[in-house]
């Protein structure tokens, strides 16, 4: 019986998120005329395309039991570098985009190496990465660089019709593509499954002979790649590079991932949850805009509150898991009680 209970509770966070999204969309549709439309739904993808891409990379890192705080400023740096190479060095997007992606991957790789090889806390290492990327933005330029490159202009304004005249932007399509690829990787590759194994128990993963070191470093490289790609998509969206772009976005990303049902302690989560988390994040913003009198900063408070609710939910699940494994972990509560 307890097995069935747990089986359902495993997907419960995602169901809660899905329910939350439907309720919010429904409430919005009832309360505000003009809220309910397919385009309004598709706009969630368009307006949050870059966030979705960051969240995919972040999901891998968090499932492996780590965290990457550098994604927001990496997004800004990618935008800055793209803009600068395009507008100041007049390079072709054909070169700019691979260069930027490579740069992001390399920085992620470097941080992953530090974390894995020297057993350092991911939190601090990537926080320094946040600083580095943010500072480097201003090394590139202290001011906004607007992007006039034809390809980027085209990407920014293009509309791809999906259902009738309802459309998605190229950025949104890229984001959806990233989610799908991410889902395949997480579910159908050994790399993806090893990420889950490490998050479940790094010690066990090692003893099972899984390539722990390589995989851990690769998740940070992947997250670096995603933030760089997010930066490019963000540039499609805003057509400019600026050092303050994506400020605090690392937390929006983490929040979206957590709301999507991924455990911050690692091992549990999936990319459709993350997609839902991003949609919930998006719809909160839209609702507050439609509501009109509340200032947009309520979004952050609501997001903070949701993170709190989901974290408490997760603690409850852990407690229940602890209960089913009670006999094995009889001594654990004593250690946990001390608050580590």
């Amino acid at each position: 019986m307890s097995r069935k209970l747990f089986a359902s509770s495993r997907n419960l966070p995602i169901l809660v998120t899905l329910g939350l999204f439907i309720v919010m969309f429904g409430l919005g549709s009832i309360a505000f005329p003009g809220f309910f439309s397919i385009q309004n739904f598709l706009n969630l993808f368009i307006d949050n395309s870059y966030l979705l891409i960051l969240a995919v990379g972040m999901t891998f890192v968090i499932i492996s039991g780590g965290i990457d705080l550098s994604v927001g400023s990496m997004l800004a740096l990618s935008g800055m570098v793209s803009a600068s190479l395009l507008e100041k060095a007049h390079m072709s997007p054909l070169f700019v985009i691979p260069i930027v992606l490579l740069m992001g991957t390399a920085l992620g790789l470097f941080m992953g190496y530090l974390i894995q090889a020297f057993d350092l806390p991911p939190f601090i290492i990537t926080l320094a990465g946040l600083y580095l990327a943010r500072g480097l933005c201003y090394v590139v330029s202290l001011f906004t660089i607007s992007v006039k490159n034809n390809f980027f202009q085209a990407a920014a304004h293009a509309q791809v019709n999906i259902i009738g005249t309802n459309f998605l932007s190229p950025g949104a399509l890229i984001a959806i593509g990233v989610v799908l690829i991410g889902f395949f990787v997480s579910r159908y590759t050994k790399f993806g499954r090893t990420v889950y194994a490490i998050g479940g128990s790094e010690q066990s993963a090692l003893l099972m002979g899984l390539p722990v070191a390589r995989t851990k470093i690769a998740t940070y490289a992947l997250s670096g790649f995603c933030s760089a790609l997010g930066g490019i998509v963000f540039t499609f969206y805003t057509l400019s590079g600026y050092g303050l772009n994506g400020k605090g976005m690392e937390l929006d990303t983490i929040a979206a991932v957590v709301i999507g049902g991924t455990l911050l302690t690692g091992g549990v989560g999936n990319l459709f949850g993350t997609l839902l988390g991003v949609l919930v994040y998006g719809i909160i913003q839209v609702l507050i805009v439609f509501q009109g009198t509340l200032n947009s900063w309520w979004t952050r408070i609501v997001i903070g509150f949701l993170v709190f609710v989901f974290c408490v939910l997760q603690r409850l699940f852990e407690a229940r898991k602890g209960a089913t494994l009670g006999r094995n972990t009889a001594r654990e509560p004593a250690k946990a009680a001390a608050g580590r």
Partner: peptide, 16 residues
């Protein structure tokens, strides 16, 4: 037990 509690039984048997 040196297995991963978060993976399915089948995966634990075949991980790697």
């Amino acid at each position: 037990i040196n297995l991963c509690p978060n993976l399915s039984v089948a995966e634990n048997i075949f991980a790697g």
